[in-house]
Amino acid sequence: MDERAIRVGVFPYEHTQALLTGEVPIEGVTATVEGAPIVSDVFRRAVLGEFDVAELGLTYFLRMWDTAQRPFVALPVFPNRNFRHSAIFVNTDSGIERPGDLTGKRIGEFALYGHDPGVWDKGILADEFGVRWEECSWVIGGTNTPLPAFDWLPLPAPAGAGIRHLEEGRTLNAMLEEGEIDALISVDVPRALTEGSPRVARLFPDYERVERDYYGRTGIFPPMHLVAVDRELAADGTLLRAVYDAFCTAKGQVEQRYLSGAVKQHMSLITPWFSSLFERNRQLLGDDWWPYGVRRNRKAVDTFLRYHFEQGLSETMLTIEDIVAPALLDT
């Protein structure tokens, strides 16, 4: 009997490369695994129905959840995660010296109102610093290159939010440097900062210390993306387990490579003092510092789901048990 054929879309991270090359197969199926140079291209193709299994940003998944079709169920696989205090940038003439100063300001946001880092940062700013998104105005667009609105995705506009999309041909980087916006939340670092402009700075200059403290207090290493499966396949628990196991194996191989490399002080890498950073990260995050599964990610995912609802982007308050395929709730 021929194996079932499935199409898989995922960005080529180091911990997904073995899936893309076929070194790690998905047992019991014939999988065609494709990447893309820009991760949002994977999202777009998934939303348009070109994949059976695909990486999706958390907000992209949730926006589709609230459609009549509700096409996806989540797998507890999180291929992209990052601490996001480092994703907030300010104009140095704006008078913003601390997080609370963002209240009432005009803030740019990359790609869409409520992109994944934006949801995290708005939530953290509200929880820890009392900054409410409703009290700010928002300009949406591309950070370093012009970016049209994502017309292939639902774009909910929460009541009371002052939101507009940037005019054609303009960038948030230029607006921030010129003072037309006071701050920016963006997955992409504005070019003005990387090029040394004195007019742009991070809100948290010592962001590593702040983010390590955040993890130490909360235990949250913020996930940005998950892996979604077409709802019609979700009833096949054997297939879902095989997909989950393959992602875990590919990630585990990379983690083990770093752990083994510590013996030789990671001599295969060209980053000085990497072993010192790696050891500090292990002390804080443990040997499985990029966890998959429901148990290790429940608090982080539930926090994002709460933020998404509070920011007017979800119709109902969800938990991780609501969105993850039942066959994988034991992970």
Rank of each mutant, 00 (worst) to 15 (best):
F309H: 13
H225V: 00
K264S: 15
L259Y: 13
W289C: 09
R306S: 11
M224G: 00
V263W: 13
S268E: 15
L269R: 15
R306D: 10
R282D: 14
T303F: 00
A300K: 07
E208F: 13
Q256Y: 10
T238Q: 14
A300V: 10
I220Y: 06
G216P: 00
P223H: 02
M267Q: 15
R231S: 09
K264L: 15
V294M: 01
V229W: 00
T249K: 09
E208D: 11
P205H: 08
F221K: 01
T249E: 12
E208T: 12
L226Y: 03
P272Y: 06
E279H: 08
H225L: 00
V227R: 00
H308W: 08
V200D: 15
G196P: 09
D213C: 05
Y292Q: 00
P272L: 08
N297F: 02
M224S: 01
E208G: 07
V200F: 14
Y215N: 03
F221S: 02
D287R: 09
Y258G: 02
A262K: 11
T218G: 06
L226G: 05
I270W: 11
S276N: 15
P198W: 07
L203K: 03
M224E: 00
A235Q: 13
T303N: 02
W289H: 09
K299E: 13
W289P: 05
D245M: 13
R306P: 02
R199N: 09
F274T: 07
F304Q: 01
L284R: 05
E211K: 04
N281W: 08
D288N: 12
D288F: 04
S276G: 14
C248K: 11
T303C: 03
V254L: 15
V200K: 14
T249D: 06
P291Q: 00
A242H: 03
R296I: 01
F309L: 08
R296F: 01
A228R: 00
L269T: 15
S197W: 02
D245E: 14
V301C: 01
W290Q: 04
A246V: 07
Y215D: 01
L284H: 05
F304M: 06
V301P: 00
S268A: 14
C248R: 12
F274V: 08
D236G: 01
L277W: 10
L284W: 07
L305R: 02
G261Q: 10
A228L: 04
V301I: 13
R209F: 04
R209V: 06
F309M: 06
R241F: 07
E232D: 08
L239D: 03
A201S: 13
R199D: 10
D230K: 03
S268H: 14
A201Q: 10
R298N: 12
L305K: 02
G237D: 06
R295I: 05
Y214P: 08
E211R: 04
G252R: 01
L269C: 15
S275R: 09
R280W: 11
E279Q: 08
R257L: 14
K251C: 00
A300H: 11
L305D: 04
T194Y: 05
V301T: 02
L240V: 04
